[in-house]
Design a protein around this nucleic acid. Sequence first.
DNA 1: GTGGTCTAGACCACA
DNA 2: GTGGTCTAGACCACA
Lengths: 123, 123, 123, 123
Amino acid sequence: MEFDQHLPIYMQIMHVIKNRIVSGQLRGGDKLPSVRDLAKEFKVNPNTIQRCYQELERENLVFTQRGLGTFVTEDVETIKNLKTGMAQELTQNYLEQMQRLGFTPQEIIKLISTRVNRRDDHD
Amino acid sequence: MEFDQHLPIYMQIMHVIKNRIVSGQLRGGDKLPSVRDLAKEFKVNPNTIQRCYQELERENLVFTQRGLGTFVTEDVETIKNLKTGMAQELTQNYLEQMQRLGFTPQEIIKLISTRVNRRDDHD
Amino acid sequence: MEFDQHLPIYMQIMHVIKNRIVSGQLRGGDKLPSVRDLAKEFKVNPNTIQRCYQELERENLVFTQRGLGTFVTEDVETIKNLKTGMAQELTQNYLEQMQRLGFTPQEIIKLISTRVNRRDDHD
Amino acid sequence: MEFDQHLPIYMQIMHVIKNRIVSGQLRGGDKLPSVRDLAKEFKVNPNTIQRCYQELERENLVFTQRGLGTFVTEDVETIKNLKTGMAQELTQNYLEQMQRLGFTPQEIIKLISTRVNRRDDHD
DNA sequence: GTGGTCTAGACCACA
DNA sequence: GTGGTCTAGACCACA
């Protein structure tokens, strides 16, 4: 068992940015905040943001233009893949944990249906 | 933004034990490992386990008998409530994260149905 | 027979603080001494005071604000309940011990009436 | 503040015996248990009982006859004084604690009357 | 051996 | 400075 498993900060920030991209807060072609600005927003060393942008670029989610900044990819397909990938990871984790609690697939789908419908009604 | 999600160790261990209870690995009346043994298993100070067991007792999930040990509650209702409570928390978190990714309730339920069914086929 | 009545220190200190609250030395909203200060006052380890404050919080007699301190509840009803609860415990113990000495209820009430009246005269 | 105020064991045992005398479990002239027997009953060193009997004799509550044992005084007056003395000590402590909680003499007598009467009804 | 309490002292987040 | 958690290690009562 490990109890200090928390992800490196740069990965946590990558995750936040991916969320913003997938949810449409950041759209294809949008400029990301400057390394310094984002470092301030997250109260984090600029190097950490730098690393974060590097990794995002490696995943083709952003690209940088010397002297201009870092931008969200305009490749719709990449973003779409990101979205489905993240959704599947979330869903897989969720299902695994529910089954570990002893819920059968049928029970899970029933439970989630009622909750989703309830949200439909109220929100 | 918060980058130190670090739940206290004693709570993480509480969570592990709750999982064991809910999943049936630990059944009503079963003896939990001794404070010292579990401390070794988790490579943690006995006081931390002590705190963990105390909190579990406060939640009526276990009871202790001086000089004998700590035991899982025999109250089926309490365990049942724990199970539904944990399931609802997992489900709520899952739904929130999915909606933050931009999935509508309909999309979520569709995605989860297909995955659950796939599991049905393969497992 | 039990000759080690030794109530845990943290409970004894809880009792002291409850007395201060009930008697009005500490009023709703008042800040309690810091964990470290009270530890010095009682010549006791800060952890012991920590435990004490935690239990008091669990009984809703105090609340803590991270980084600011621990404060007496402002809920008048809670304090009132505490007061009557403590009074009843004291009274019950007193009556039990008197009856163990062989005093009948009538004798007890007579004895206490005369003493209380004497106090009335002199104080 | 002192937190390990517990009375010496021999005094605690004196108190128990005084209770037995005052309540009539032990009557004037009755033989007390032998030092050894009482030591067993209280799981205590015989020396402790010896000390206890000595002090009780100093207070004229018991007398010893070489080779026969220790006996409760036959002086009715002494026992009566013991009884009233113990009752007054209990009562005084009770009243002090109640007043420290902020109860007025009138409130105390009212509270105790209702409790005593309730006992009258039910016991 | 079992849990319960306590000390001494560290490090943390929050303000 | 404030409370919160944790370690290392001690001693206790109960069985």
